[in-house]
């Protein structure tokens, strides 16, 4: 089948502003959008730039706005999108070139929630024990691949770029609810800040965007309740 692939192009060394280009691409219905981008780069315009690595939804490189929703280009198929496909960089983040956005702010927020196990007890000789139930408690949020699809789909983040954003809260959740961790108080304090969890308006865009199927809104609510519980 033939697909009309519209791409929002921008080269900071040549263009004053982003502009749309359309490419007619021969595609198989099972092709992913990433396959089409690679094809355009090989056959139409070698300067088309985008990030990609694993090619199967695990590395988080290629989140972008595809037919108006944040998706990983390597995980969404042509037959799910139809014959007209539009691709633009993730919203709400500065565009560097074509589909590449500036990610340092996003990773800075990730770092701000202390995304590492905090436990100062002496380590036992063997593994620490954890029940299957305790392990299941934070399973969902361990799946996050830091693709930024959620944060950049969030109207609260667009309105206030200082908002720490869903991805960072997901990462904090992963530790706050890990029975081995002792840093919950520090993290909850950070997230109780004016740019923390209270910015969430439960719009659910993040849940729709997450390629890992994480129930982000639930994670945010659990973190909010933990903050309230502590104050209670």
């Amino acid at each position: 089948m033939n697909v009309d692939l519209r791409i929002l192009r921008y080269d900071p060394e040549r263009d004053k502003a982003p502009h749309w280009e359309t490419y007619a691409v021969a595609a198989d219905p099972m092709d992913r959008v990433l396959d089409l981008l690679i094809k355009v780069k090989a056959e139409n315009d070698g300067s088309l730039s985008f990030r990609r690595s694993c090619g199967h939804g695990i590395c988080g490189s290629d989140a972008m706005l595809i037919n108006s929703r944040n998706r990983l280009a390597c995980r969404i198929r042509v037959d799910q999108l139809g014959k007209k496909i539009s691709v633009a960089p993730l919203p709400g983040l500065p565009v560097v070139k074509d589909l590449i956005v500036e990610m340092s702010g996003f990773f800075g927020k990730y770092r701000s929630v202390k995304p590492y196990l905090i436990n100062d007890q002496p380590e036992p000789e063997r593994e620490r024990l954890q029940t299957q139930k305790d392990r299941a408690r934070y399973d969902d949020t361990t799946k996050c691949i830091l693709c930024a699809a959620c944060t950049s789909a969030c109207p609260s983040f667009w309105a206030r770029p200082e908002y720490v954003g869903p991805a960072a809260i997901v990462q904090a959740h992963r530790f706050i609810f890990d029975s081995r961790d002792e840093g919950a108080a520090e993290r909850l304090e950070i997230l109780a800040d004016e740019n923390g969890v209270w910015r969430c308006r439960t719009i659910f865009n993040c849940v729709d965007a997450c390629p890992r199927g994480i129930n982000i809104t639930r994670a945010i609510l659990e973190v909010s309740s933990a903050i309230v519980g502590r104050r209670g």
Binding site: E123, R135, Y138, D139
Partner: peptide
């Protein structure tokens, strides 16, 4: 010890 979330056996190992 670094925090890796391994799956666990029924006795927590």
């Amino acid at each position: 010890h670094m925090g890796l979330p391994f799956n666990r056996t029924p006795d927590g190992k």
